[in-house]
Simulated assay, not measured.
Amino acid sequence: MHGPASPGWLLVALCAATGAYCLLRMRSNVEEQRRAAGGEALMGFGMAAMAVPATVFTPPPWTWPLYAAVFGAAALRALWAARTSRGGRGGRGGLHHLHHLVGTAAMAYMAVVMAASPAHQHTHHGAGVPPLTAVLLLYFTGYVLLSGARLVPSAVAGGTGVVRWGDRPELARACRLSMGIGMVAMLLTL
């Protein structure tokens, strides 16, 4: 992605750590956690790879179409899951699949934009923000604000019994919030 190196590396670290935690969640005994964790790990590691500052490493030209294909396939999978979801967790399971669909489609969109842009050209020359980028920025900004607001009550709620690290819902929400923040940062540098 285009942008300064220091924030880029922070974004890489945040997204890679989120992807790593999602891999831990794939070992959960809770089926719902395992199902969601795989797609979220792909998003975390994909975002980390795409966020490497261009001043440090410029990927070969074939990388961006590959990202677009991988995230396009993930978007189709999320679309299928949203279509067939029974809406577990009080009807929000289908919404999670729709959110994952928007996220994977946004990653595919960013890969297509990066494939179409010359290596170091990142100014729009007065053209402003493209409409799709603006819509995605609004969506993910709203998602981050809403997720942050939902995270606060769950942190103080407490529970009984010992919960494994991969099964902690507040950590899963924090990871999703981190990826939402990362998506806003990546869209801003697009």
Rank of each mutant, 00 (worst) to 15 (best):
P118N: 02
A116S: 08
A116M: 09
H96K: 07
W9M: 04
M107I: 10
Q33D: 15
V113G: 01
L187I: 10
A82R: 08
A155M: 15
A108S: 12
S117H: 07
A5F: 03
L14G: 02
M50L: 14
H97N: 13
V70Y: 01
L188K: 08
H2E: 01
D167A: 14
Q33L: 07
A185P: 02
R34K: 15
R168G: 01
F140I: 12
M26N: 01
A41F: 08
M1T: 07
T141M: 06
A54C: 04
E31P: 08
F140C: 10
T123E: 14
R34D: 00
G166F: 11
G182S: 05
G128I: 05
L187M: 11
P7M: 04
L79P: 01
G38Y: 07
L171K: 09
T58F: 06
R86C: 07
P153D: 04
R176S: 13
L177H: 03
L188I: 11
V70D: 03
Y21P: 04
E32S: 13
G103M: 15
A106S: 15
L23C: 09
G93E: 13
M47Q: 14
P65I: 04
W64I: 06
T189C: 08
L145A: 15
T84N: 09
E40A: 14
V112M: 12
G72N: 03
